[in-house]
Amino acid sequence: MNLTVDIGNTRTKIAVFNGEQFVCEEKFEEAAPQHLLDMVALYSPDKLAYCSVGSGQPAFETALQKLSCPVLHVTGETPAPVTVHYRTPHTLGADRLAAVVGAITLQPETDLLVIDAGTCITYDLVDAAGNYLGGNISPGVEMRLEALHTRTARLPRTEADGETPDLGYDTETAIRAGVVRGIGYELQGCIRHWQKRYPTLRIFLTGGNRYAFSNAVRQNILTDSHLVARGLNHLLEMLP
């Protein structure tokens, strides 16, 4: 058994794999060492891979390094089955690299656009020859809603859940529709742009907010909530 740990900005996800086969995943609101120790005790992993985009989880990372099984810390510079053309691989988010690797395990030798709709929205492009060509980072739903409230004098803090009409009929729906529909239009425009360059492009949509936008980008979309975990596990399986 393998364990993968994805320490994100808002949640920590621990997944279990049997070889390349996904078994299950647990999600936690905080990176508490006890969650890790409980999963290790339950599944007795042979090895573990983790990545972290959060700002410092010293207790959790100390617990990881004290495990008796081999532990792989994945970064943007970890050897992977892609050729990274990012000019600053040391700043490349490990979750972005892992998501691309996860997509490749499901759709090898294919032009792929991987969209991760989470705290931020990331767009990453890899071609059929395995070249990771780079990507873009955009604010996610909550970040946009928060910015509209904190960077203006009178706009209220609006919740993401609720109506998103074509035209807002009050300030709350105007904000929510502007943010949620605006992201949908952003995704559509990005997909159209890259499909012109890569006509056989396949699109993966992952992340905690993926279902909020799946209807906005219906064409040729593959949704998978475990892309990062799949990628971490594949990098783990590559170890000698």
Rank of each mutant, 00 (worst) to 15 (best):
L227M: 08
W194C: 04
P199G: 06
D166V: 07
D38L: 11
T4H: 07
F17G: 02
L239Q: 15
N220L: 01
G178L: 03
M39V: 09
A99E: 02
G56H: 11
Q219Y: 06
L92M: 07
V23E: 15
V114C: 05
G208A: 02
T206S: 07
G208L: 05
T105Q: 14
R154S: 12
V114G: 05
A41Q: 15
P81V: 10
A128P: 03
M1A: 12
G207N: 05
T75Q: 03
A31C: 11
D38G: 02
V16M: 04
T10I: 08
H234F: 04
I137S: 05
P79I: 08
L42W: 09
L72I: 10
G168Y: 00
T91H: 08
E25S: 13
K196R: 11
A160P: 00
Y132K: 05
M39N: 06
G118I: 01
V228F: 05
A98K: 00
Q219A: 10
N215S: 10
R144Q: 15
L67Y: 11
D111A: 00
L222I: 15
A147C: 13
G189P: 03
P139W: 03
R192L: 08
V53N: 03
C190M: 12
E61V: 13
T91D: 07
I183P: 08
E237P: 00
E26Y: 15
E237D: 14
N220F: 02
V179C: 09
L125A: 01
K13F: 07
H149F: 05
L235W: 09
E163M: 06
A32E: 14
E20Y: 13
I203Y: 01
F60H: 04
G130P: 06
N209L: 11
L167C: 10
H85Y: 15
E25C: 13
G93R: 09
T158Q: 08
G93H: 07
Y132E: 04
G135D: 04
N2Y: 13
A59G: 04
T12K: 02
G134E: 14
G178S: 06
E146P: 00
M1V: 15
G231T: 08
L42R: 15
T223C: 14
C51E: 15
T171Q: 11
D6K: 01
L48K: 00
R11E: 04
S214A: 15
D224Q: 12
L155T: 06
N131F: 00
A99M: 03
R218P: 14
G184D: 03
